[in-house]
């Protein structure tokens, strides 16, 4: 069953409907791509899930066990009016248990979802190691702790995670360098290391290869594939580069004007006429 389930996710900004009644499932262990023309609502959808924005309507469920997921599916198909009181109660219970809608971003991260940003969102004045330690801290001791008198040096577990992640993205030798001084490609990899140090089960990657040279792009793709295998991640990818998508994605969801117009395997999506129309010849598939 799906690791992440979106049900009727909607976001309206006074007059503009940016995300329109989106139902989407992300299966455990898969790499799912979300594509769509500019302004289709991809970033907004991700922001809704990660808690940066609050949805106008709809729910997001995370990691429900099979039985609960099945119940949710079933109860969802019955409209609000037709649902009996018991059914409504059951749905409410399930929602309070597994819904991550409306959580603060840091709470979302603590449940196991992480995000790597489109721009390298790092801490420029701190060393690479410190950058990753930040995320490792949160993984180690949760979203807040009153440990302001403890010496940093006694946090071995944090250091371990940091070292592991730096190694995973091949930045260990630069661990002591100031992040701002790293070349852009390294910054992007540091970005990924930070996202990984949260030890997520689900990783959102917002245009990870934007602005990269072909070599860097290939390196990033290799990295993503390797990480998925080594760490067993589920990855949701927002990308414009169709080659990448079709080479690594297990399934593709297509957004246009805030709504899902296609959702399936690469082959299915490739042949979909709605998709072709939405892109209107702008893309080589």
């Amino acid at each position: 069953m799906g690791l992440l389930e979106m049900e009727g996710l909607t976001k309206r900004f006074s007059g503009l409907t940016a995300v329109d009644d989106v139902d989407l499932t992300v299966e455990r262990g898969e790499t799912k791509a979300i594509i769509g023309p500019n302004g289709a609502g991809k970033s907004t959808t991700i922001n809704l899930i990660t808690g940066l924005l609050e949805p106008t309507a709809g729910h997001v469920y995370y990691d429900p066990p099979d039985e609960a997921a099945a119940d949710i599916h079933e109860l969802r198909t019955i409209s609000d009016e037709e649902r009996s009181a018991d059914q409504q109660q059951r749905l409410d219970e399930l929602r309070s248990e597994y819904s991550i809608t409306g959580l603060e971003p840091h709470e979302v991260v603590q449940t196991g979802i992480s995000k790597s940003f489109q721009t390298a969102s790092i801490f420029p004045g701190m060393t690479a190691r410190e950058n990753v330690q930040m995320a490792a801290l949160a993984t180690e001791h949760g979203s807040f702790k009153l440990n302001f008198l403890r010496r940093q040096s006694s946090f071995d577990a944090v250091d371990e995670i940091a070292t592991e992640m730096l190694e995973a993205v091949d930045l260990l030798r630069d661990a002591g360098e100031e992040a701002a001084s790293l070349p852009y490609g390294d910054k992007r990899r540091l970005e990924i290391a930070i996202a990984l140090a949260s030890e997520p089960d689900l990783l959102f990657m917002d245009e990870p290869t934007a602005g990269m040279s072909p070599e860097e792009t290939q390196a990033t793709v290799d990295l993503v594939e390797r990480l998925q295998q080594e760490l067993g991640l589920t990855i949701v990818l927002v990308e414009h580069d169709m080659e990448i998508i079709f080479s690594i994605a297990d399934s593709i969801a297509v957004l246009n004007r805030g709504a899902i117009i296609a959702d399936g395997t690469p082959d299915e999506v490739e042949g979909d006429t709605d998709v072709q129309e939405a892109y209107l010849g702008g893309v080589e598939l």
Binding site: T50, E104, P105, H106, V109, Q110, S114, K115, F117, S121, I122, F123, P124, G125, M126, M134, A135, L137, A138, T139, G142, S143, F144, I194, A197, S198
Partner: peptide
């Protein structure tokens, strides 16, 4: 870290 990139701190899971 907060002084350098507040949003990122939120997104590593810290309150």
């Amino acid at each position: 870290a907060l002084g350098e990139n507040e949003q990122r701190v939120e997104f590593v899971g810290l309150n």
